[in-house]
Design a protein around this nucleic acid. Sequence first.
DNA 1: GAACTTGGTTTATTTTTTAAAGTATTTTAA
DNA 2: TTAAAATACTTTAAAAAATAAACCAAGTTC
Lengths: 95, 95
Amino acid sequence: MGEFAKLDPLLHSELRLAVMSTLLTMEEADFVYLREATGATAGNLSVQIDKLFEAGYISVEKGFAGKKPRTVCRITETGSRAFAAYVEALKSYLH
Amino acid sequence: MGEFAKLDPLLHSELRLAVMSTLLTMEEADFVYLREATGATAGNLSVQIDKLFEAGYISVEKGFAGKKPRTVCRITETGSRAFAAYVEALKSYLH
DNA sequence: GAACTTGGTTTATTTTTTAAAGTATTTTAA
DNA sequence: TTAAAATACTTTAAAAAATAAACCAAGTTC
């Protein structure tokens, strides 16, 4: 693209962007919180969390809260930088 | 999505956003110009222009420049408003 | 202890993106 | 003058992505 910066395809997704955005303001959120904050279905969220994890944009820690499973996500430095770069790139489109 | 505004799926696409962004600054651009400005392949551009047209976001005028076909695109009022709404919605994600 | 809930994951369907191949016309060049 | 190449696209088919439905395992409620 000539004058347009490339948009990181991993972040250019409504749900993944919402997850990253949430984690940026919290530095920690569990699966249930993210599901409610984003309004996503569990299946969709599970898949997208996995993609962000595979890219190294978030860390995922599976443990228990009492007797219930609890998946805690945090943004990584790589993720933070990618988000900032994405926002920068977006600007080239917003006239 | 709870606090996150819905992103118009028609605009939430790198190429379609680039096309709309270009047309916003020019109010008129032909196929060849758009192809060069966005760096897209002709096939991809053709498909995405069609989608924007079907949505009523741009007008498409097929004519000739001398003997060569020439497709001229312009943004519509609907398209302009949709773009502005998209930018507004995006803000809910950018921390 | 059957039915329901919670916290997920997996799988399958649909949608979207993308590039490759195709079409029609025109220009170049031998 | 005609064969080859270029221009301006469109169509089609393959790959990738998004999404929801179905599933699973463990715990809770009645």
